[in-house]
Simulated assay, not measured.
Amino acid sequence: METKKKGPSGRPRGFDADEALERAMLVFWEHGYEGASLAALTDAMGISTTSMYAAFGNKQALFRKALERYAAGPSDYLVQALEEPTALGVATGILKGTLRTTTRPTGPQGCLGVQGALAASGSGQEARDLLAAWRNDSCGRVEERFRRAVDENDLPPEADPALLARYVTTLAFGIAVQAASGVCRDELRAMTEAALRAWPPA
């Protein structure tokens, strides 16, 4: 239900947009782009379809805003990991952050950025393209950080930053898919630790 609150001008304000977006993000995270119906979204957000369109635009625009919120919230471990002083620290931060976020004891499992639109019809193509670009951007940022690690002699000169970045992000995305499939945190943690033991020495 929309709650009517008085704004500074005395006019009623329909709802808390920030809270509504948070709830929409959780619906997309749990059900994916196409699985999240307008009815499910507006019910979770506590607003009417008219209010949703007025505040956020259409479903695709809402999904884009939800992904931005996800990147700045549950998925912000990537930004933190990129600030680690070593390449191994970066890889560790990404994989452990993925593990932590995708196997939460409550709420959706997996990753919104991976499962949100893996399978989509023509109407969901924009969402699928958006997520592909989001994943590629993440990989590109990791590659750039690993290139710096080579320059700083933190990675051996023969290391391939692009390959290492793809390796780490593919592992992270794989963790997300496995978590959504019900694989337990302990098993995924063991896999993560095994992958990190194979990290190239400086």
Rank of each mutant, 00 (worst) to 15 (best):
K4E: 01
K6S: 00
G7E: 01
P8A: 15
S9A: 01
G14W: 08
F15D: 01
D18E: 14
E22W: 06
R23A: 01
L26V: 07
L26W: 01
V27I: 12
W29R: 04
W29M: 09
H31K: 15
H31R: 15
E34F: 10
E34Y: 12
G35A: 11
S37W: 04
L38K: 07
A40V: 13
A40E: 14
D43C: 08
D43A: 14
D43K: 15
M45N: 11
M52K: 07
Y53N: 14
A55E: 14
F56Y: 12
N58Q: 06
K59I: 06
Q60T: 14
F63L: 01
F63R: 03
K65E: 09
K65V: 00
A71V: 11
A72P: 02
G73E: 09
D76E: 09
D76M: 09
V79Q: 15
A81C: 06
A81G: 04
E83Q: 15
E84K: 14
T86Q: 07
A87Y: 04
A87I: 10
L88S: 06
L88V: 12
T92H: 12
K96E: 14
L99V: 10
R100E: 13
R100K: 12
R100Y: 06
T101N: 07
P108R: 08
Q109T: 14
G110W: 10
Q115K: 11
L118I: 15
S121G: 15
D129W: 09
D129I: 11
R135A: 12
D137T: 10
S138V: 08
G140Q: 06
G140N: 05
N153L: 11
D154Q: 02
D154W: 02
A165R: 05
V168D: 02
V168K: 04
A176V: 07
A179F: 00
A179P: 02
V183P: 01
V183A: 02
C184K: 11
C184V: 12
L188C: 08
E193Q: 12
L196Q: 05
L196D: 06
A202W: 01
